[in-house]
Write a protein that binds this DNA or RNA. Structure first.
Length: 924
RNA sequence: AGGCGCGUAGCUCAGUUGGUUAGAGCGCUACCUUGACAUGGUAGAGGUCCCCGGUUCGAGUCCGGGCGCGCCUACCA
């Protein structure tokens, strides 16, 4: 084995080997266990969030595979309609072409080509992360079988009356020229203005204070071209007499009514609201209540259309806004303008300001689907981890709105609906079926709806469509419902909720039994990682390392906002002055697990991954030590276990129980910590050190050596299996060296059983003994450290006082004690003997003394003692306070009181001893 | 505006049903190249558990209020 751990020598080779051997495919007769991967965008590249999520899933998958479950990690990718289309369109534009020029068919060909080319990128990244996905069953949300599932779902929902087409106000992205769903709108607070306009009253009407106009306020002046009423609150005394009268809409000249509606807040502004039913969701509702006409004044690119006065036609909405304000001002109808903060709706992909826009779209009638989906979580068929996310789910589901599923795009599942010349709708699995169902002859020309379904409509079928539905496949029978969905809280509504609804509807069972929600990966400052901010990291760059120059280049290339480049560069140079060193996959995976605390976002920090790279190296070197001392050595035959052997076996028992519990409860952080702590602070810090005196002593009996070597190897082999789910590469590599020495010649650790705590006996007696040994060792080390005794300088130790058990343990562990604390001689003093001047440590009643003998500075020892005395005094005082409290003694459980009494005695005794010691030092 | 969450060492975070001296990693200080590992070892320093009040024999932990931060949802034109 190499002197230090080098991930590059092992990782890729191992993965290829595993994949070739077919270890990732389900096998055996165990209980089925299945996770479907949240399908990454096929044309994207994986970011830190993916890497995080995949690490957790792979840990679960490897764990269950080792438990003997028939384990499937279902692979697949998503066609990601809008994102992908935008991306390919940008490529096209860069070549000076447009989508419209090359036409639908050619464009789609191009997207498919790009998908083929780009898909490999993701596969490669997933492989580098060590993800043990079953590649043989890879699916794509637009592959043939999947398309069939989408078609089937659409048609059946339509037949059940749960999909309908209607003209409604939808969120319209004027840049992409498509409708989007409510969820795809991000509301951001922006600085804007509030314009106050005067709308002249007609027929001589006046307000209560004698004005011949009403003042309405708006943040979007251009929409006034489509106003069809002015509304006031029905109880508003100021305007009550005007309800039913009319105003003249300036610039347009239309006479519009003054109506009364509860929607108006009389306390805001003037209490008069202009109503634009075609361009505002609230106004639309008001309009519907009052039977107002809808006047749409915008074209699909948000320019002003022919329904508006000539002067504004063809103008962009913001240009029109300026003109309208200017024109009103010129007519003396601009009352005032105020600065105003408002929430601006923007498309989550394009960033364009969204317009509420009147169009024909397809909708899913969602309430009937939502009800069973709410019940499934209420009754525990599906459980969220952490639980609090259920509230979020319920809140959204109970207030859910119909879902707009049609998109005016090309890349996606084409809507299976056809229209005849008079606009009648025919839906079917094919045009032929649509005709047949309607009894339509071939002579009636039909045209298919040009639109596609939004991506999340197809993603919603993921759990069952990937397993072969609508066919009743073996996979569907075996792996559905899947066991757990691992995903981020940002897509609970987009995906999780919709998957639950669709799966209940079409499979009649839940898609998964648990939903594990992890946090978002942020940068070291807690900022969200994003391409625009240039603070993202490519997981592969952490695995392989990257130079500063390459990183800067990567972060500043192909920016949608190139003006950010200098800032990104500066920040990058500051944060990574030396680029990023290579840490390897195992270190990265371990970091993700360690950071996966429940329900919070994680901050990714290089210091952290560096620490876990060091951990890998520690494990590597521990293995080197073990192999060095066990290879070609006799380990078969009678064996005798030492106290240290029994102790580490006992600790192993706890490691296994704790690690299983942690994974079973999705506490990946505790799992990582348990493994780390065991490897570093128990196996390496203590056990390996405890074996050295035996291994290097020519007089150690053969049976003891055999016992020690078997324990060294056996515990190492076990902990490798225990840790394999999180650090697969290093554990496999070491395991292949270690397992044969134990007679295990299987080719891979991957298919070995996850270790059972029962393989190792809990041994409280050994635990207590080694704890005692640690106590005396640490006592002496503390003296040595505080007195600045050189590490190589041996000292003598005197024991005094203590119990029979202290004597027993001291005798049993003398050699170990001497080695671990660098001690020359150990002697016992009679209880009544006068010890020589010394530095003192207390372990229970046992005095552990290091004679000063010119080694130890009196002043240093005095201050060490004083510190210790002060601590003990505080303790004594605190306990005395408790025990003096009659209520405590009377009401606390007897055992708690008794425990305090014992502590009290011990602390007092210790304090006395320390004070005597201090006095004896003072005398010198 | 409502809902959810967070606030513990310089930093990032654990802390189960309320009960030893509140822990870890990183960072910091001192010493050390000792035959697995300097990607290391040994010792050490470092805390008003955000604030106020309450329940309790006992609160980092439970309850109420406040402050600060984050997220989600809905928004007054």
């Amino acid at each position: 084995m190499e002197h230090s751990f080098d991930p590059h020598r092992i990782e890729q080779r191992l993965y290829e080997e595993w994949e070739k051997a077919g270890y990732f495919a389900p096998s055996g007769n165990g209980r089925p266990y299945c996770i479907v991967i949240p399908p990454p965008n096929v044309t994207g590249s994986l970011h830190m969030g993916h890497a995080f999520q995949h690490t957790l899933m792979d840990a679960l998958i490897r764990y269950h595979r080792m438990l003997g479950d028939c384990t499937l990690w279902q692979m697949g990718t998503d066609h990601a309609g809008i994102s992908t289309q935008m991306l390919v369109e940008r490529q096209l534009n860069a070549e000076g072409k447009t989508r419209a020029e090359i036409g639908r068919e050619a464009f789609l060909e191009r997207v498919w080509a790009w998908k083929e080319q780009s898909g490999n990128n993701i596969s490669n990244q997933l492989r580098r992360m060590g993800s043990s996905l079953d590649w043989s069953r890879e699916r794509f949300t637009m592959d043939e079988g999947y398309a069939k599932a989408v078609l089937e779902v659409f048609v059946r929902l339509y037949e059940d009356g749960l999909i309908y087409r209607g003209q409604r106000l939808v969120n319209w992205d004027p840049e992409l020229k498509t409708a989007i769903s409510d969820l795809e709108v991000d509301n951001t607070e922006e600085q804007g203005q509030l314009w106050h306009f005067r709308y002249p009253l007609l027929d001589g009407a006046t307000t209560a204070d004698g004005k011949d106009y009403l003042v309405v306020a708006t943040t979007r002046p251009e929409t006034m071209l489509g106003d069809t009423a002015v509304a006031v609150h029905p109880d508003d005394e100021r305007y009550r007499n005007l309800v039913g009268r009319r105003v003249r809409l300036p610039l347009v000249g239309r006479e519009i009514p003054i109506i009364a509606d509860e929607y108006v807040d009389p306390a805001f502004g003037t209490g008069c609201v202009k109503i634009t039913p075609a361009h505002d969701f609230n106004d639309n509702a008001v309009g519907a209540r009052h039977g107002l006409p809808l006047v749409n004044v915008l074209a699909e690119d948000a320019t002003i259309n022919a329904n508006a006065p000539e002067a504004y036609r063809g103008l962009d909405r913001y240009e029109a806004r300026k003109r309208i304000v200017a024109d009103l001002d010129a007519q003396g109808l601009l009352d005032k303008v105020e600065d105003h903060k408002l929430m601006v709706p923007r498309g989550d992909r394009s960033g364009a300001v969204i317009e509420p826009y009147l169009t024909d779209q397809w909708f899913v009638k969602i309430k009937p689907l939502a009800e069973p989906a709410i019940r499934a979580v209420e009754n525990g068929d599906i459980e969220f981890v952490p639980k609090q996310y259920e509230n979020l789910y319920f809140a959204w589901m109970r207030n859910i709105q119909d879902w707009c599923i049609s998109r005016q795009q090309w890349w996606g599942h084409r809507i299976p609906a056809w229209y005849d010349a008079s606009g009648n709708i025919y839906v079917g699995r094919s045009e032929a079926e649509a005709r047949e169902k309607a009894g339509l002859g071939d002579d009636v020309p039909l045209t298919q709806d040009p639109d596609v379904l939004e991506t999340w409509f197809s993603s919603a079928l993921w759990s069952f469509a990937t397993l072969g539905w609508p066919e009743q496949t073996d996979e569907l029978a075996r792996y559905h419902p899947t066991d757990v969905l691992v995903t981020g809280h940002d897509i609970i509504f987009f995906w999780v909720a919709r998957m639950i609804m669709m799966t209940l509807k079409f499979v009649g069972e839940v898609p998964f039994r648990k939903v594990y929600i992890h946090g978002l990966v942020r940068d070291a400052e807690g900022q969200k990682m994003s391409k625009t901010k240039g603070n993202g990291l490519d997981p592969l760059d952490l695995i392989d390392g990257i130079s500063l120059e390459d990183l800067v280049k990567k972060r500043t290339e192909n920016l949608t906002q190139p003006q950010m480049a200098p800032r990104i560069e500066k920040q990058t140079r500051k944060e990574f002055p030396n680029g990023i060193p290579s840490y390897g996959t195992d270190a990265l995976r371990f970091t993700f697990c360690a950071l996966a605390t429940s329900g919070r976002d994680i901050r990714f920090d290089l210091n952290r991954i560096e620490g876990y790279r060091n951990f890998c190296n520690k494990l590597w070197n521990a293995a080197r030590f073990v192999l060095m001392n066990c290879r070609d050595k006799e380990i078969e035959g009678d064996a005798e276990l030492t106290l240290a052997d029994r102790w580490i076996r006992s600790r192993t028992h706890h490691l296994l129980a704790d690690s299983r519990r942690a994974i079973d409860t999705y506490r990946f952080d505790l799992y990582a910590q348990t493994v780390y702590d065991f490897v570093w602070h128990e196996y390496c810090d203590w056990y390996l050190e405890l074996t050295k005196p035996l291994l290097w002593n020519p007089d150690t009996p053969a049976a003891v050596l055999r016992g020690t070597r078997r324990t060294l190897l056996g515990v190492l082999e076990t902990l490798l299996r225990a840790a394999h789910p999180v650090i697969p590469f290093i554990t496999e590599t070491i395991w292949r060296e270690v397992a044969p020495l134990l007679g295990n010649r299987h080719p891979t650790i991957m298919l070995q059983p996850y270790p059972d705590p029962a393989e190792f006996t809990a041994d409280p007696e050994a635990d207590a003994s080694i704890d005692w040994l640690k106590g005396v060792v640490l006592g002496v080390r503390n003296i040595r450290g505080e007195a600045d005794i050189r590490p190589k300088q041996t000292v003598d130790v005197l024991f005094q006082g203590g119990s029979a058990r202290d004597r027993e343990l001291a005798a049993a562990t003398e050699e170990l004690f001497k080695r671990l604390a660098t001690i020359e001689r150990v002697d016992w003093l009679d209880d009544d003997a006068e010890p020589p001047p010394n530095a003192l440590a207390l372990v229970g009643n046992l005095k552990v003394m290091v004679p000063l003998a010119g080694l130890i500075d009196l002043d240093a020892e005095r201050s060490r003692l004083e510190k210790e005395i002060q601590r003990r005094e505080q303790e004594v005082q605190r306990i005395a306070g408790k025990l003096a409290n009659a209520d405590f003694v009377a009401k606390a459980p007897a055992q708690v009181v008794e425990k305090e009494r014992q502590k009290q005695q011990a602390a007092q005794a210790a304090l006395r001893t320390l004070q005597e010691q201090l006095a004896s030092i003072q005398r010198r």
